[in-house]
Computed example of a mutant assay.
Amino acid sequence: MSGATENEIGKIIVDSAVNLHKEIGPGLLENVYEVLLAHNLKFEGLRVKRQVPIPIKYDGVKFDEGYRADIIVNDRVLLELKSVESTSRVHKKQVLTYLGLTNIKLGFLLNFGASLMKDGITRLIK
């Protein structure tokens, strides 16, 4: 799947997230969903990196103490996972900031705390 487009990767991600949510339900910790989703995506043949450092550049200096992306898939799609009752604008801004800092175009905010996973998926483009 190394030559897959962002949209093809995105479809696999959404399908995997929905299936995972159906199987184990809402209410677990984010890191549980992260481990299981990463496992499912690897099973689908995708390259998955977890807890990827996102450095900050300031005043000509690169600082590695910036942020961490929960999951980056095939170096083309960024995932931020939540397990909250509902997401807010700040969560979407977080993903957009990560996209800008990584030069990745497509990101997903996946809220596994939603009653229905389809209501917990936000697709974001930078």
Rank of each mutant, 00 (worst) to 15 (best):
N7F: 01
L28Y: 15
L106N: 02
K118R: 15
T5C: 06
L110Y: 01
L78M: 07
L96G: 02
L46I: 04
L109F: 14
P55A: 00
L37W: 00
L110R: 03
V95R: 00
V90W: 13
H21V: 03
E34Q: 14
L36Q: 00
P53I: 04
I121V: 13
L101S: 08
Y58D: 09
S16T: 09
T87C: 02
M1Y: 14
K62Q: 14
N19V: 01
H91I: 10
L78N: 12
I56N: 09
N19P: 07
S16A: 15
K42N: 07
G66L: 02
I13N: 09
E65M: 05
I9H: 04
A4E: 14
K93Y: 09
M117V: 08
V32Q: 07
I121K: 08
F63Q: 03
S88K: 13
K57G: 05
K49Q: 13
I56P: 06
V32H: 02
M1K: 13
L29D: 08
D70K: 00
K22Y: 15
G27V: 07
D75V: 01
E6W: 06
F108K: 04
L79D: 05
K62R: 15
V61R: 13
D75F: 01
L37A: 04
Q94H: 08
E30N: 01
K118W: 13
L78V: 10
E80G: 03
L96R: 11
K22D: 15
V61T: 15
I9T: 06
I13P: 15
A114M: 10
G113I: 10
L110Q: 07
G66Y: 12
V90P: 03
E23K: 09
K42W: 04
R47I: 09
N103D: 15
G3H: 11
K42A: 00
K11R: 14
M1I: 06
D70S: 00
G45T: 04
S86G: 04
R89L: 13
I54N: 12
H91T: 05
A69F: 12
N40Y: 15
M1G: 11
P55I: 02
L99T: 05
R47E: 15
V18F: 04
F43G: 04
L96T: 05
G60F: 06
E23F: 04
E6R: 07
R123Q: 10
I71C: 09
F112Y: 08
E80T: 04
I104C: 08
V18M: 08
V84K: 14
G3V: 03
S115I: 09
E65P: 02
L41N: 07
K93T: 14
T87N: 01
D70R: 07
K105M: 00
T122S: 14
I56F: 04
K57Y: 10
H21N: 01
L46T: 07
F63D: 09
L46A: 05
R123H: 03
L99F: 08
P53Q: 01
R76W: 06
E65R: 09
L101T: 04
L106E: 06
R123P: 09
E80Y: 06
